[in-house]
Design a protein around this nucleic acid. Structure first.
Length: 493
RNA sequence: GGCCCGUUGGUCAAGCGGUUAAGACACCGCCCUUUCACGGCGGCUUCACGAGUUCGAAUCUCGUACGGGUCACCA
């Protein structure tokens, strides 16, 4: 019942971030759900910037949001940059529009000037809280006489404009994910709709914008649920159609509180920098608070659009599980081309000092081959540095005594000698040729595979574990392999 | 504190009055393998609690507890 989306009318959804800081992963999920709903229904996604907090809004943040959305493949049909017939799409550019409606509200007596100062309001709030009462505005400025008003103005007070909230009313609305919602208007109080500097407050601007932009469905995070009654009374006072709401639950950190910096990486940018792939982030975010009608876990964007539906969106909040993200990302890492992973890995290798930015075409080709060997071991690209020594560091350092012991067996010198001999005899060093010689060594020397593979691995890399040995030998090439082995073996004496 | 939302294993979750309560991640074990990883197989662990409605409740109702959101001239 709550999940009905009327297909007869065009679905117009929006994502309306405020550009006040790094683009949060929760914002990305809201954007994704809106985008999925738009795509699913053949509707439109509008990107609007809510920058009425002039002190905290920055251009950089806006750019960051746009870039992150593009990276995630979330495209918008109307809004900043692309335009549309309901613009402008940045709230600070719409001040004149809001003003018209404010004047009307004022003229109709549905709103009034309030001259109370911050200090007075805070004192009032504290007093009410102390008495365990609802900290709502008590309405001192509700019925000001002309004389009182003149006095305040003479004092130099800059008024805000408050909405005259109807008393003793039930404010009801339907929520796509939560069903019927009902609030007491007395719990809302007269709230500010225009700041003393003339800028509208969020709850007011959002109503006007959503109505004027003909938004049909407002899908947003649950933190806005308690704001919705305020918005509903405004729609009613303004005689504007109320959209359908859908409040999706929050993303929580490990300790079950709203995800914040102390829970680790929270911005889309941080995940991007660590080398998570956008398709993995989309896939993971979609599964946080939404479940498909199947057992499928891996979804392309197209499949997500196909399967998405608001009535499978969960009411309860979800804990952000980095392990699951890693698993999903690892899946996409495996299916990505080695070229792509290499491209993403280079900045990390540069930062860790393994390479400088300028690679010759030949070096790059070799690096791609190495990445192909370790690609399956990575959950995200930044982990490439954990494997970089194996490839870049010819001066082998033996990890620990246990590892060193591998080389101390009496058969080892013979194994190593024979390996070098056979490797040198090879016309071409490649996977297909290396395999047989290792096998031949076990036969000729009558030793187990472990006695062959392990010492070679340790002499080559200093480690007992690592990626496929045969492919590693091919990637490193004959000279480097032999040089490394010689150096390691002679260091033993 | 008022108002509002939520509660199925460690985590994501399916479930819509009758199921042996799916599946995935994580963890553990086994297999595969030169190692690690991948992959395959198996295991672990769940309906917050208490009443009620009903022949029958994870599913419906109420209460309690716990968690969260919100009450700004922030969004």
């Amino acid at each position: 019942m709550g999940g009905l989306i009327f297909m007869s009318e065009e679905v117009r959804v929006r994502f309306a971030p405020s550009p006040t800081g790094p683009f949060h992963i929760g914002g990305a999920r809201s954007a994704l759900f809106n985008w999925l709903l738009a795509k699913k229904t053949g509707g439109k996604l509008i990107l609007r910037i809510e920058d009425t907090d002039r002190a905290r809004s920055t251009k950089e943040s806006e750019e960051n949001i746009k870039e992150a959305l593009k990276w995630l493949g979330i495209t918008w049909d109307e809004g900043i940059d692309v335009g549309g017939e309901y613009g402008p799409y940045r709230q600070t550019e719409r001040i004149e529009i809001y003003k018209k409606f404010t004047d009307k509200l004022l003229a109709e007596g549905k709103a009034y000037y309030c001259y109370c100062s911050d200090e007075e309001l805070e004192a009032e709030r504290n007093a009410l809280m102390a008495k365990n009462e609802m900290p709502i505005y008590q309405g001192q400025c509700r019925q000001l006489t002309a004389e009182q008003e003149a006095k305040f103005i003479a004092e130099g007070r800059k008024p805000t404009i408050r909405f005259r909230t109807p008393t003793n009313q039930q404010i009801v609305f339907d929520d796509l994910v939560r069903g019927k919602m009902s609030f007491e208007s007395n719990g809302v109080g007269d709230f500010v709709i225009v700041k003393s500097d003339g800028t509208p407050v969020y709850n007011y601007a959002v109503v006007l914008d959503d109505a004027l932009m003909k938004i049909s469905h407002v899908i947003r995070a649950e933190e806005h649920l308690s704001n919705t009654p305020r918005q509903v009374v405004l729609y009613q006072a303004l005689e504007l159609p109320v959209p359908i709401f859908g409040h999706i639950s929050l993303i929580l950190g490990k300790d079950r509180s709203k995800m914040s910096k102390r829970h680790g990486a929270t911005s889309v940018d941080q995940y991007r920098k660590l080398g998570y792939l956008p398709e993995a982030i989309d896939n993971f975010l979609a599964l946080l608070g939404w479940a498909p009608n199947s057992e499928q876990e891996i979804f392309s964007s197209e499949e997500l659009i196909q399967e998405f539906s608001m009535d499978r969106v969960a009411k309860n909040p979800a804990v952000f599980d980095i392990d699951k993200l890693n698993w999903i990302n690892a899946h996409y890492m495996k299916t990505a081309s080695a070229e792509k992973i290499t491209f993403l890995a280079i900045p990390h290798l540069v930062e860790a000092g393994y390479i400088d930015g300028e690679l010759t075409a030949e070096d790059k080709d070799k690096l791609v081959k190495f990445i192909a060997v370790i690609q399956d071991h990575l959950s995200y690209v930044a982990q490439v540095v954990d494997y970089a020594d194996i490839y870049f560091k010819d001066a082998v350092v033996i990890e620990d005594q246990e590892t060193k012991d591998v080389l101390l067996d009496e058969e080892i010198p013979a194994v190593i000698a024979l390996f070098k001999e056979k490797l040198n005899a090879l016309e071409e060093v490649n996977e297909a040729n290396i395999k047989p010689i290792l096998k031949a060594i076990t036969k000729e020397l009558k030793v187990g595979g472990k006695k062959v593979f392990m010492p070679i691995r340790v002499a080559m890399t200093g480690q007992m574990h690592g990626p496929d040995l045969v492919r590693l030998i091919e990637v490193l090439g004959r000279e480097r392999v032999i040089a490394r082995i010689d150096a390691t073996m002679s260091s033993l004496n």
